[in-house]
């Protein structure tokens, strides 16, 4: 018995001779938020469909909550909620009726379903419009209705495929807040996206997909460490002092470049922030800002795929 709620080994999907997913290994721990990140066509959605048993695998094994989705699909689907890419609802029914339908398919009794639907709708803030036809809903409201469905079904794992694509910034941040609250409730969340900032802001770990393979699994920091040059990038702003002159005397500094008015970008082999600040102040400079610039996931991602291309 493993602590992993999802475990895939050598998972493969071929269409004809073309591998869309090419032998990926993935383990998802209970309660984590894992981001599946990669460009369009990298095999993210296909992987998700195989995890849910909605597409047959061409090779490899999948265990979801210790069950085989191809053999025990009902048990797997009972515990795993799926919000598809650009989710659709029946436009002629109201939001509440749409949820009632899926509740009945899930085998809930009417009273139980109504109670859960009310709670779920309140949580995604759709209670006011619950009885309006879905045709009148915006994109963001549809996605939230999709999340309400997962809540209503008490899913243990929520699989969200491109949950924020096509949403305005306001709806995006609302949706991300909701997804964060899922994780707080102990729901394991799998989010696929090609938008890096989104994954970075909610995920505890990321898996990078490229051409049907997973290139990297780990935290964002690990990713930055792996693809970076191992150097620290420091941004410093100070007035009334010659910063390059001071900085180049510090051991380990390899590069100093101007980056705007009174601002320099320094590359060093180690964290020299404390030392640099001390020296700048000692020499009478007025230090206004010193910052270890994070390698954003985006940069790490670009670096990663650049490296992957070079290797290829």
């Amino acid at each position: 018995m493993s602590t992993h709620v999802i475990e895939a080994k050598g998972l493969t999907k071929r269409y004809g001779a073309v591998p869309v997913v090419d032998g990926i290994d993935l383990a998802v721990e209970e309660g984590e938020v894992l981001g599946l990140l990669g460009p369009n066509g990298a095999g993210k959605t296909t992987t998700i469909l195989m995890l849910l048993g909605l597409t047959e695998t061409s090779g490899g094994t999948v265990r979801v909550l210790d069950k085989d989705p191809a053999r025990e699909p009902l048990a797997v689907k009972r515990d795993v909620g799926y919000l598809p890419d650009s989710v659709g609802f029946y436009d002629n029914l109201s939001g509440r009726e749409n949820l009632r339908y899926t509740a009945r398919l899930g085998g809930l009794t009417t009273a139980e379903a109504d109670r859960k639907i009310d709670t779920a709708l309140a949580r995604v803030r759709l209670s006011d419009v619950a009885d309006r036809r879905v045709a009148t809903y915006s994109h963001g409201m549809r996605r939230r209705l999709g999340l309400a469905e997962l809540l209503m079904r008490d899913s243990r794992i929520a699989v969200l495929d491109e949950p924020t694509s096509g949403l305005d910034p306001q709806s995006t941040s609302e949706l991300l807040d909701l997804i964060r609250s899922f994780a707080k409730d102990g729901i394991t969340v799998l989010v696929s996206s090609h938008l890096l900032d989104i994954v970075q802001s909610i995920c505890s770990r990321v898996a990078l997909f490229n051409k049907g393979r997973i290139g990297f699994v780990g935290t964002v920091e690990e990713l930055a460490g792996k693809v970076g040059d191992g150097a620290f990038h420091i941004e410093v702003t100070a007035e009334n002092i010659d910063v390059p002159e001071t900085a180049k005397r510090i051991d380990g500094v390899s590069d100093i470049r101007p980056a705007g008015k009174d601002t320099w970008r320094i590359t060093a082999a180690r964290d020299i922030r404390a030392e640099l600040a001390k020296r700048l102040v000692e020499r009478g400079g007025s230090l206004t800002n010193i910052d270890a610039r994070h390698v954003s996931l985006g940069e790490a991602y670009n670096l990663f795929f650049k490296e992957a291309r070079h290797e290829a």
Partner: peptide
Amino acid sequence: GRRTMSRILAQPIY
């Protein structure tokens, strides 16, 4: 066309 198929098939039914 309505994009409801994948959502319905993800319910615990065959």
